[in-house]
Every structure is written in structure tokens, then in C-alpha cells.
Amino acid sequence: MPQPVQYRGMALIVPDNDSEWKEFYAHARAHRLVVRKCKACGLMRYPPTHACPWCMELGWTWHEVSGRGTIYSYEMVMHAIQPGFKEITPYAVVLVELDEQRGQPTPDEALRVIANLVKADFTPEAEANVQIGRRVRVAFQDLADHMALPQFTLTDEPPAGRVWRLPE
């Protein structure tokens, strides 16, 4: 079993038999953001799971997505509870809606991913720039030989829809 990856005081554990995450992180380490795509109905899902939530098919393949998307919601952590995050507080956690499969198979559904909104050096993005509607793209934060964390950075594309952040 690979050694736990130490990151901000946490031990991240991805054992050899982790049939959900092991290959996901191998792809992430190669800087590919992948989701599982159903072999029967073709719909994609995240996080990695073992049956299609729409048709119950067991067969799937990894599918690389563009890593581009829009901030759907967010929070600003002002008081960290994990000791390793105190030095980077405040930091933004964003819920990103990926461009692929938006509003499918029902208008309420999408491929959404949780990550931090970061600058190019993976330090937290400034709060004033954290807004619903802003466009983002994935950036991979390498943690170990077998693991990288997908994060998101802002792009200069025009926003998708109404831009909003919590009033001061």
C-alpha cells in the first residue's frame, strides 16, 4: 500500500484496493481530470462510483473532461478547524459546475466538483474575486508521485450568467 500523503496536517489515504479513487488520482497526477462515463447510456458522473445512477449499468470507462467550468456556489472559510489550514485562512471552497453535461439528464443535474479557488501558485484566491458565475479551469496541485489534487483557478473568459458574491 502506498504511503499516506501528508497534506496540510492530514493523512490522505488511497490504498491499492481503492476501486473508486486510485486511478482517478493517477490521472490527476498526469494532469488529466477524469470522470466515469457509463458504457450503456453514456452519461458521466462524479465522484467515481460503481454503477450508473441513471441506468444501473456496471460498465464504465474513464473519460477526460476539459476542466473548464463555472462557479455554482462557494464559501469563504474564515475560521479553519483543521490546523493545517489556519496559515492559509481565509480560503475559498468552490462548487464548480463543469461545462460537460450541464443540465443533463435533467435540468437540475450537472457534473459538479468541490475544490479550492486558488492562484497559479496554489495559494488562496483573494476573496473579492470569489464570485458565483465566474469562469474557472482546473489546475493540478502535485502532492506525491501518485497523487495530485484538482484545484481551480479563475480564467479571463466572460462570466456565465449573473455574477454575485456575498455583500460586505
Binding site: 497534506y7 488511497v14 490504498p15 465522484p47 479553519a80 471552497v93 466538483v113 468541490i114 475544490a115 479550492n116
Partner: peptide, 11 residues
């Protein structure tokens, strides 16, 4: 580990 990996590493 497991599903927590989708959120907890992000604080």
C-alpha cells in the same frame, strides 16, 4: 479516505 477525498482535502 474514500468519499471524504472529494471534500476534506479542500478544508
Amino acid at each position: 479516505r474514500g468519499l471524504d477525498l472529494a471534500q476534506v482535502p479542500y478544508g
